[in-house]
């Protein structure tokens, strides 16, 4: 890690903080998938890693490489944009698949279709 000596102090401290924040959130999300008991609760846990977990580590990479070079390096933003756009697609498809499987098996915890009817005045 010889390049770290070339980093100014503020940049290395900021990078260290952001990397720890991102990986800590990702680890908490992973622990969440172990702790929650039902599938629809587990869906929420990995989004910790895909939102600010990814965001913080990508920011850390931007800070580190921008301080190393003379010009700002922002291509890590592409990873952030990519995660924001793709996570909903995966999770919506998975939620629909889970709902479909629960309903065909007659699981009583699955929400009934009647919830989707518009109630009066709503």
């Amino acid at each position: 890690m010889t390049h770290a000596e070339n980093l100014p102090a503020w940049a290395s401290l900021l990078t260290a903080f952001l990397v720890l924040l991102g990986s800590g959130l990702t680890l908490l999300g992973a622990i969440g998938t172990l702790r929650f008991r039902r599938f629809f609760e587990r869906v929420h846990a990995p989004t910790l890693g895909t939102s600010w977990g990814t965001g913080a580590i990508a920011l850390a990479s931007i800070v580190c490489f921008s301080a190393l070079g003379s010009r700002p390096v922002v291509h890590e933003l592409l990873i952030g944009v990519f995660m924001i756009v793709t996570t909903p697609v995966t999770l919506m498809l998975l939620a629909r698949a889970a709902l479909y499987r629960d309903r065909t098996e007659g699981n009583r915890e699955a929400p009934p279709r009647s919830l989707l009817r518009r109630t009066h005045g709503g």
């Binding site: 990986s23 998938t33 599938f39 869906v43 990995p46 890693g49 990873i79 998975l94 889970a98 499987r101």
Partner: peptide, 17 residues
């Protein structure tokens, strides 16, 4: 199976990080 797919997807994200 849906738990497995969910966590496999999350594993990909973590590997990327």
């Amino acid at each position: 199976a849906q738990d497995r797919v969910l966590c496999l997807d999350a594993m990909y994200v973590t590997a990327m990080l």
